[in-house]
Amino acid sequence: MTPDDQVHGLSPQVMYEQFWLKEADQRRKMRMVKAAAGLVVGILLAYRFDLPAPPAVGLAAGLLVAGADMFWAWYSYEATAVWRGRRRGEVITGKLLRRKLRRLGYQVLDGRAVPGQASIDHLVIGPGGIWVVDNEAWDPETEIARYGDRLFLGEKYGTKVAKALVDASDSLAQVLSRESGIPVTIEPLLAVHGGRLRRTVTAEGLTLLKPRLVARWIVRGPRAEFDESQVELLARTAARVLRRMS
Score class of each variant (00 low, 15 high):
I92A: 00
Y106S: 04
P211D: 07
K29C: 00
V7Y: 13
V108T: 11
M245I: 15
R240N: 09
R103H: 13
R27N: 08
V82M: 04
D134W: 04
K163G: 00
R216D: 07
R223A: 02
G195V: 06
R31T: 11
R150Y: 10
F226T: 08
M245R: 06
S171K: 14
L39F: 10
R150W: 02
G126V: 04
I120H: 02
G158E: 10
D134S: 10
T93W: 14
A145I: 08
L208S: 12
D170G: 01
A224H: 15
T159A: 13
S76C: 07
H193M: 03
E78Q: 05
E228P: 00
M30L: 08
F71M: 12
W74D: 10
G42N: 05
Q107F: 02
I144N: 07
R48M: 04
A81Q: 09
G105N: 06
L64F: 11
K22A: 11
A238S: 06
E136R: 08
A164E: 06
Y16K: 04
G128V: 09
E90T: 13
Q230W: 05
V192G: 01
Y147H: 14
N135G: 07
R150E: 02
T200V: 12
P188K: 10
L242M: 15
P12V: 11
W72D: 00
V184G: 13
L213W: 15
D170L: 14
K160E: 13
V40K: 06
F49T: 02
L96M: 14
G111D: 13
A66Y: 03
R243N: 14
K156M: 00
L209H: 09
